[in-house]
């Protein structure tokens, strides 16, 4: 009996060890590939070497001195910022309409707005490519912005719908009953409450645009292409660590965005308290 209990107790802790080890390994699996590029980007060798024997900045230098990389990066930032603005505004309005409105076919519209997320991106990309060819929108800033806005919209709508559901209708009704019209209510009451959600949705939109590859593969031109498109070409053609340097910078960007999001959330939590 006592022995059984002993075994059982150890078995229990043994199971716990296995469970935690497993979860730990999964976390390593999730995280490690994002950081493996960091040491390689500082390698002194032209070829893949791990761990690097010598270290240098040359691949970062190469990145900053290659016009194509720099212009692709600038384009990506331009597009992503425009997309953030467009998608956040459009997505927030849509979410507001969906949460507050009561009209026939609302659920269908909801599913419809989300559909770019679940439509095979390649099919979307080809369709957009065809229409853009007719309209002369390939290789233009506005073309990229519109296409990426469509891709980012579902994410903003999802985030904003959750956010607006959390805002009590009574707050709004109270404002209305005090004589404020809808626009004033939106601006003075809803907007401040929805701001954290809009920031989160905007970050989503920014990163989705910044990382978007498949549409860029079709609508890029040699004079205007985004960073993921350039990275795609690079990964297939050059094994030298410039790619690792660019990847490291992208990882850094993700870290910054996540930190920014966390800080924004803390700030708003404090404010609401």
């Amino acid at each position: 009996m006592l022995k059984d209990l002993f075994v059982e107790k150890h078995w229990e802790s043994f199971k716990k060890v296995i469970f935690y080890t497993f979860c730990g390994l999964v976390c390593v699996f999730l995280i490690m590939p994002n950081f493996i590029v960091v040491p390689i980007s500082f390698s002194g060798a032209r070829f893949l070497e791990f761990p690097p024997k010598t270290y240098s900045w040359q691949w970062y230098q190469n990145y900053f001195e290659t016009e194509e990389w720099v212009s692709a990066t600038i384009t990506s930032f331009e597009v992503a910022i425009l997309v953030t603005i467009c998608a956040t505004i459009l997505g927030s309005l849509t979410a507001y309409g969906l949460v507050r409105g009561r009209f026939p076919g609302k659920n269908i519209i909801n599913s419809f707005i989300i559909s770019p997320m679940v439509t095979p991106v390649l099919v979307t990309a080809v369709a957009i490519y065809k229409i853009y060819s007719d309209l002369g929108l390939t290789g233009t800033l506005i073309g990229f912005t519109l296409a990426h806005t469509i891709m980012a919209l579902p994410f903003v709508v999802i985030v904003m719908t959750a956010n607006l559901r959390g805002i009590n209708v009574e707050v709004e009704q109270a404002a209305r009953s005090l004589g404020a019209n809808r626009i004033t209510t939106l601006r003075r009451v809803i907007f401040p409450l929805a701001l954290p959600g809009m920031i989160a949705g905007g970050l989503f939109a920014f990163l989705i645009s910044f990382d978007e590859l498949i549409i860029a593969l079709f609508i890029s031109s040699p004079t205007l292409s985004t960073l993921p498109k350039k990275l795609w070409d690079g990964i297939r053609t050059e094994i030298n660590p410039t790619i690792a340097a660019v990847s490291t910078l992208l990882v850094l960007l993700s870290v910054l965005v996540l930190l920014g999001a966390g800080m924004a959330r803390k700030y708003f939590e404090k404010k609401t308290q």
């Binding site: 490519y129 065809k130 060819s133 007719d134 031109s221 040699p222």
Partner: peptide, 20 residues
């Protein structure tokens, strides 16, 4: 100058009768 010279795009242009 323009690029890339994708044949798929030539086809789209000719079909749309909007050859630039």
């Amino acid at each position: 100058e323009d690029s890339p010279a994708a044949e798929a795009k030539v086809m789209a242009m000719v079909k749309a009768k909007n050859v630039t």
